[in-house]
């Protein structure tokens, strides 16, 4: 789904390295890029080589992508830091699996901190999109390439092993005409009829480095203003909302439906951008919802952003299952039910 959506979004360069549970994407790109005139697929010798090939392709102006799963994304972090510093657009897909270390190949959300806190070294941010369905994988892939070009920034698609393996009907967006994409006035292409250009990140003079840091920060402020996105599901009359993203949100939605049948006024808040975090939307909700249950497939990472967003003005509860284990909607429904009554929330 991501592969086809990426090609339709004008992705013309893909480099990857095999790692489960996301090999289907690499294999799809291998098959598809061959049929595209100016398309390139490279099976790189490592995750590190793959991200660096993406750096080169992005310098040359192509819409470029790489993908991997948790341990491989760790290896790419230096390259992602360079992409941020050199203000190069690129899309990176992380199909998260259980960790730390080699972990396992089951769906997990253990890389939230790594994804939303930069991940590599230095003072930077990465736009992070969190799809929860096949359709959204396709739609957000298009968005990811658009944001990458618009903000000249790496964009991370944060999926998990569940999404990497599932099959769902999808309506793909129409392919774009790559030749109609806006001209990128900063790319390397040979200094024909213009002064030579440099794309660099070495700034030995601290004043120059500070200048870049503030320039990036201004860009991040713009992004924080412009793109936060979240889905609100049955939150209008809710007394309690579950907060979850990706696969966890799908499970939570099932749970919300179940407890609604039991008469509990519960909704779901699903962040679609994890950075920037949709904190204003969440704050709006907190005007009428006092209790939030954060559900993650980890031991508690996004819950920190929830607390930062709500600034102690609401009750934030947490339930998590790490290690690649997958909760059932019934399990979450039970958690909600217990919490709902413990907090003495009013029923219908």
């Amino acid at each position: 789904m991501i592969g086809e959506a990426a090609i339709r979004a004008g992705c013309r360069f893909y480099a990857g390295y095999p790692i489960t549970p996301q090999n289907e994407l690499t294999e799809y790109m291998a098959r598809s890029m061959d049929n595209i005139e100016d398309g390139t697929f490279v099976q790189a010798e490592s995750e590190i080589a793959a991200i660096n090939m993406v750096i080169g392709a992005s310098m040359a102006g192509a819409r470029a992508m790489t993908s991997s799963s948790s341990p491989g994304i760790s290896l790419k972090q230096e390259g992602i830091s360079f992409l941020a510093a050199q203000e190069l657009p690129a899309v990176i897909v992380n199909t998260m699996r259980g960790g730390p270390g080699l972990g396992n190949i089951a769906p997990s959300q253990g890389d939230y901190f790594q994804a939303t806190r930069g991940g590599g070294h230095g003072d930077y941010r990465t736009i992070v999109l969190a799809p929860d369905s096949g359709q959204e994988l396709a739609d957000l892939t298009r968005t990811a390439f658009e944001y990458a070009d618009k903000y000249r920034s790496p964009v991370l698609m944060l999926a998990d092993g569940m999404m990497g393996q599932m099959m769902e009907p999808v309506v793909f967006p129409e392919p774009i005409d790559v030749s109609l994409l806006p001209h990128k006035p900063w790319t390397l292409g040979g200094a024909e009829g213009r002064p030579s250009r440099i794309i660099l990140s070495l700034l030995l003079n601290p004043a120059k480095q500070e200048e870049l840091n503030w320039k990036l920060e201004r860009k991040y402020e713009t992004i924080t203003r412009e793109i936060p996105k979240a889905e609100k599901y049955m939150t209008d009359d809710a007394h309690l909302a579950v907060i979850a993203y990706g696969t966890a949100a799908r499970i939570a939605k099932g749970a919300v439906k179940r407890v609604r049948e039991m008469g509990l006024k519960v909704g779901l808040f699903r962040p679609i951008t994890l950075w920037p975090y949709p904190k204003n939307d969440l704050r709006d909700l907190s005007r009428h919802i006092r209790d939030f249950l954060v559900f993650e497939m980890n031991t508690g990472q996004m819950v920190e952003d929830v607390k930062l967003s709500l600034e102690g003005k609401s009750n934030v509860h947490f339930y998590g299952r790490p290690g690649g284990t997958i909760s059932t909607p019934d399990e979450i429904a039970k958690m909600i039910n217990t919490l709902y009554h413990r907090q003495n929330l009013e029923e219908e």
Partner: peptide
């Protein structure tokens, strides 16, 4: 060599 690969493949 990896960055050069990306550049060369696109250009």
């Amino acid at each position: 060599a990896a960055v050069a690969t990306g550049l060369k493949r696109v250009l």
